[in-house]
Design a protein around this nucleic acid. Structure first.
Lengths: 146, 146
DNA sequence: ACCTTATTGAGACATGGTATCAATAGATGT
DNA sequence: ACATCTATTGATACCATGTCTCAATAAGGT
């Protein structure tokens, strides 16, 4: 899952080009977010970061999460019990599926969402510039093991 | 906006049938949520409640919001800066549009979403039981006044 | 009108997230 | 390689949002 290829190198390169300093905390956190199978909260990312870099500060992690989000690298996942978890952003439109059983996230083909948006835009008269679609249920794996 | 008919009477009746006592706080809050053009946070609902019922407690409002949500009368709206606001739930599938300019919410025709879900279910192999779709942009009114 | 008990209000508490500021460590020029 | 400059960091104080406790209140059945 989270199968679409996410490349941490690209994120670091983008930070560099953006005029930001490339630091070890950033490398650590980017690596954590880019490789997690699950959506992560800032707190979880902090825990993960301290495993390889014990002195990492809490505020720093919150700041990095904010930066990564504002740069568009990660994006908030809206679950039932809140929206404090993040997944890597895809370049294209995103349709995210969350398994209510195992908690893992999966990106689905978003072509149908593009069509839906076009249609709704015409039907409603609103100008649609962004979307968040999340689907919940039981993933293919969890259905097998049930 | 929020044009689909929401009936506060039905909510109270449902509470009554559910074995809950029907109280003035409930009436006040249900009225507030059912008639707001905007998604409301618990804090905003508290402010609104105290206008007509000054002694209303904060915890009470949070409890009622939780109850109304668990009974399915209201539902969390997932915006950019958090997900602590609520709108009345529709009986059918929901497709919510939020105007990034005026902040108002609008329910769109959700037929296309039903189709999309069916399609994605087959394509992905996941069993989809719930969805959250939110669209953002400029509403018809705000486009005119721009 | 009375009794029972769910609901409420006040305030203490917990959690998640932000602001401050001195210390640290990237980047750049020498 | 070294010094310098300044963005970034870590520690901690702080704030906001939401939860818990418990005595007081008020629905609803009798």
């Amino acid at each position: 899952m989270l199968s679409k290829s996410i490349n941490p190198e690209d994120w670091l390169a983008a930070l560099d080009e953006g005029g930001f300093r490339v630091t070890t905390v950033q490398e650590t956190l980017i690596d954590i977010f880019a490789h997690s199978e699950y959506p992560l909260s800032a707190e979880q990312a902090w825990d993960a970061a301290r495993q390889s870099r014990p002195k990492t500060g809490r505020a720093t992690v919150y700041r990095m999460v904010e930066k990564l989000e504002s740069l568009g690298f990660i994006r908030r996942v809206h679950g039932y019990q809140g929206c404090s978890h993040f997944v890597p952003t895809l370049p294209e439109l995103m349709m995210l599926f969350i398994c209510l059983d195992c908690g893992r996230a999966d990106y689905l083909d978003s072509q149908p969402l593009g069509d839906l948006i076009q249609h709704s835009e015409h039907a409603s008269g609103h100008h649609i510039t962004d979307s968040r679609l999340q689907l919940f249920g039981a993933c293919a794996d969890c259905q097998q093991n049930a």
